[in-house]
């Protein structure tokens, strides 16, 4: 574990709480979460429906605000930032992959991918180079001038991944990225994400309810009723054996998706 401690902390959340509703009917979704993500980690967040995993992701990704607690990303306290600062911060430091891709229908694959750097000062030649590298890794270079309605779901999600990476963010948040994909496209996408994580040192936090998806991670965090229930490190384990471990924890945890594959 020594080499892990020497790594830089990218995200540090302390005592994060989130309450929805007004005083009378307040409902606490996150009940004090502490989470530290190191540079180069691929963290999966799992949990049954209603455990607060998407809320946690939104709060960590600065899309939603925590009611209480502090979140530091890249040594910046995002919980104290104003909306305008947060927007700029998201645009420069974070990448997003959504379950339903959220590509802009009116833009081509390339235009979608280049969108996050459209307001930055990066010059065109460098942007072109960066695009070529990423599109190569994701295998979507030939699709550059196609529109989203002309490509498959898997290709759309790769485009979305490209958009999340083009500006070299400090970390990437993925919300059920395989949720709308068939199993083949899903495993291919996850393989690519794992590759990116290892080779390009991209830090990823991914929410999923699918044990197969989380078996690609380097660490899986289990949520239950708004609190961290347990954590699993993959270490040097093979993916199948890590998958089994995840299934075991999930069986204890209960909730949905306990069916054995």
């Amino acid at each position: 574990m020594n080499d892990i401690n020497s790594q830089k902390t990218v995200l540090h959340a302390q005592n994060v709480r989130k309450t929805y509703g007004s005083k009378g009917s307040a409902q606490q979704v996150l009940k004090g979460i502490d989470l530290r993500v190191l540079e180069g980690e691929f963290v999966g967040i799992m949990g049954p429906s209603g455990s607060g995993k998407t809320t946690l992701l939104n709060v960590l990704a600065t899309i939603d605000r925590a009611t209480e607690g502090t979140i530091r990303i890249d040594d910046a306290d995002v919980s104290k930032m104003k909306d305008a600062e947060l927007s700029a911060f998201r645009r420069q430091k974070l990448g997003f992959i959504f379950q339903d891709y959220n590509l802009l229908d009116t833009l081509t694959v390339k235009e979608n991918i280049l969108l996050p750097i459209s307001l930055s000062k990066m010059d065109k030649r460098m942007a072109e180079e960066e695009f070529n590298i990423i599109a190569d890794i994701l295998g979507i270079k030939e699709l550059a001038h196609k529109y989203p309605h002309e490509i498959s779901g898997g290709q759309k999600q790769r485009t979305s991944a490209g958009r999340a990476l083009i500006h070299r963010p400090s970390m990437v948040f993925a919300d059920e990225p395989t949720g709308a994909l068939d199993s083949k496209s899903a495993s291919s996408l996850l393989g690519t994400m794992e590759d990116l994580n290892r080779k390009r040192d991209v830090t990823i936090v991914m929410v999923t309810h699918d044990p197969v998806a989380s078996s690609y991670c380097s660490r899986v965090v289990f949520l239950k009723d708004g609190q961290i229930y347990s954590e699993l490190y993959r270490g040097d384990k093979t993916r199948p054996s890590f998958f089994k471990e995840i299934m075991d924890v999930q069986a204890v945890l209960g909730g949905d998706n306990v069916d054995v594959i």
């Binding site: 911060f89 998201r90 969108l115 958009r163």
Partner: peptide
């Protein structure tokens, strides 16, 4: 689209 753009950090 606007939601996506806001999430990506465009104000």
């Amino acid at each position: 689209s606007f939601k996506t753009l806001r999430q990506l950090g465009f104000d």
